[in-house]
Design a protein around this nucleic acid. Sequence first.
DNA 1: TATGATGTTTACGTAAGCGTAAGGTTTGGC
DNA 2: GCCAAACCTTACGCTTACGTAAACATCATA
Lengths: 159, 159
Amino acid sequence: MSGRRLRIGEAAALAGVSVRTLRYYEELGLLAPSAHSPGGARRYAEEDLARLARIRELKDLLGFNLDEVRIVLAAEDRLGSLRAAYHAEADQAAQEAIVLEALEINTRLQAAVEAKLGHLTAFQARLRDKAVRYRAVLTELRALGGTPASGVEDLAGNR
Amino acid sequence: MSGRRLRIGEAAALAGVSVRTLRYYEELGLLAPSAHSPGGARRYAEEDLARLARIRELKDLLGFNLDEVRIVLAAEDRLGSLRAAYHAEADQAAQEAIVLEALEINTRLQAAVEAKLGHLTAFQARLRDKAVRYRAVLTELRALGGTPASGVEDLAGNR
DNA sequence: TATGATGTTTACGTAAGCGTAAGGTTTGGC
DNA sequence: GCCAAACCTTACGCTTACGTAAACATCATA
């Protein structure tokens, strides 16, 4: 179904990160390649790239550091292992706890995203406002083109 | 206008940063207190705190590093000095250039914000989707168990 | 099978963004 | 005027997130 496995250089280029970054993430326990060549070279599958994308998302988009990223991913991983052992009759209370934990983290993430969205849209509004004022100043400046220093005073009142 | 000037400790506490951070930003040429005590202690005015807020916004919200922040602030500063020297008949072409520069940076900022907003909303959608699936798993788990383990039953239904 | 590109581990280096300690000065309430 | 709290400068330290180099192994193509 899914395509071939990528060498570390290919994976890095595709994801827009460095080879060193991939090895570093593995060292931190964030991202391990799902396979290795017989000689021991890392082979990355698509799911690995997806995980990498999630890492970069949490880091770059939400500003999480790699330790915080790990916490989030760890919960998702526990959920994944639950899903794998779903039919193996494990302790149901434990399974519930895992799903609840995932839900909790999901909720916290949603809150974080929501907060960021709020701040960003507010920032955006202020930017637009400023742009309008800048353009007004510009046209006024240009209108003044032939008329030097005639006491026109409303740049200051522009705030 | 509230004239009270703040000592560095007060300013830092109010802004939620460390004293060291304020001094560091000054060292980088990002934020200088608008006054000093006779003995040489920094005194921060409200405008200084506003500037600090802008710095943190660009850094934390957009992920800019302090050097990028400085570029943005420098343009705003030039615009401010233009405003101050508006009546001093300076070279009009130069004034236009300054406003144009501010507009350009504003545009780039808007683009950055827009991009982030797009990514964030996409991320948000995926989070919501996941939450729905998690709750489905949870109800299924509980249905399989027959008896609700702990008092709370309707986590799936709320929200 | 040769061989150059790409990979491996190990380990030291680096830039940003502060933290923290030392040693001295200023501030401001009693 | 006294004195603790807060400030000053200088300077070295620390963490994060990698970069870079060395010395060697493996991969894949001719």
